[in-house]
Simulated assay, not measured.
Amino acid sequence: MSDTNPLLARVHHVAIIASDYGRSRDFYTRVLGLTVLAEHYREARQSYKLDLALADGTQVELFSFPCPPPRPSRPEACGLRHLAFAVGDMDVVVERLLGEGVAVEPVRLDEYTGQRYTFFQDPDGLPLELYEAPREGV
C-alpha cells in the first residue's frame, strides 16, 4: 500500500445503541445538531434505525433494541474509548451544551498537539469528546 492510496479511506459511520430511543434521538438531533438522513422502524427487530450525518458526511447510526445490556465505560473499559467530534470554536459548543443542561468537563489542552479538548456524555453515558481542530482541519 502506498501513502497516497491507503487501505482505509475514512470513517463512514459509528453505530450507537440507545436505551431510550426518543431521548437519544433528541440529544443527537436537537442538542448536537446532526442531520437526519433516514429513519426506519424494523418490526422484526422491534428496533428503530436512525441515520444521522455530520457536516463532513460522516454518519452516526442510532439504534434502539428492546432491553439492551449496559456497556461499561468507566473506569476505562476495554474497547472503544470515546467518540470525538471536531469543532471550530470550543467555547460556542460548550456554551450550547451547558445551555441544554449537558455536563461538560473543564476544557483541557492536549500536551502533544496544543489543541483544546473536553469530554461530555450522551444520555446513556457514552463518553463523547469535543476536539478544537485547527481551522483548516475542521
Results as ranks from 00 to 15, higher is better:
residue 1 M to R: 07
residue 7 L to R: 10
residue 8 L to V: 15
residue 11 V to T: 04
residue 12 H to W: 07
residue 14 V to R: 08
residue 15 A to S: 14
residue 16 I to F: 08
residue 18 A to W: 12
residue 19 S to H: 10
residue 20 D to V: 00
residue 20 D to C: 02
residue 24 S to K: 07
residue 24 S to D: 08
residue 25 R to S: 03
residue 28 Y to A: 00
residue 29 T to L: 02
residue 33 G to D: 06
residue 36 V to F: 00
residue 38 A to L: 11
residue 39 E to V: 01
residue 40 H to Y: 10
residue 41 Y to P: 08
residue 41 Y to I: 06
residue 43 E to Y: 08
residue 45 R to D: 15
residue 46 Q to P: 04
residue 49 K to V: 06
residue 53 A to V: 00
residue 54 L to W: 03
residue 56 D to C: 07
residue 57 G to I: 01
residue 57 G to W: 00
residue 58 T to H: 03
residue 61 E to K: 09
residue 63 F to R: 00
residue 65 F to N: 11
residue 66 P to H: 13
residue 67 C to I: 09
residue 67 C to Q: 13
residue 68 P to V: 00
residue 69 P to L: 13
residue 69 P to I: 07
residue 69 P to H: 13
residue 70 P to E: 11
residue 70 P to Q: 12
residue 70 P to F: 09
residue 72 P to R: 15
residue 73 S to E: 14
residue 74 R to F: 15
residue 75 P to M: 12
residue 80 L to M: 11
residue 81 R to G: 11
residue 82 H to K: 11
residue 83 L to P: 02
residue 84 A to Q: 04
residue 84 A to L: 04
residue 85 F to A: 01
residue 86 A to L: 06
residue 88 G to H: 06
residue 89 D to C: 06
residue 89 D to E: 10
residue 91 D to V: 04
residue 91 D to A: 10
residue 94 V to C: 09
residue 98 L to V: 15
residue 100 E to S: 07
residue 104 V to D: 03
residue 105 E to K: 15
residue 105 E to Y: 13
residue 106 P to L: 14
residue 107 V to R: 12
residue 107 V to I: 15
residue 108 R to T: 02
residue 108 R to H: 01
residue 108 R to D: 00
residue 110 D to M: 05
residue 111 E to L: 12
residue 113 T to S: 12
residue 117 Y to D: 09
residue 118 T to Q: 08
residue 122 D to W: 10
residue 124 D to V: 07
residue 131 Y to Q: 06
residue 132 E to G: 06
residue 132 E to H: 04
residue 134 P to C: 04
residue 135 R to K: 02
residue 137 G to K: 09
residue 138 V to E: 06
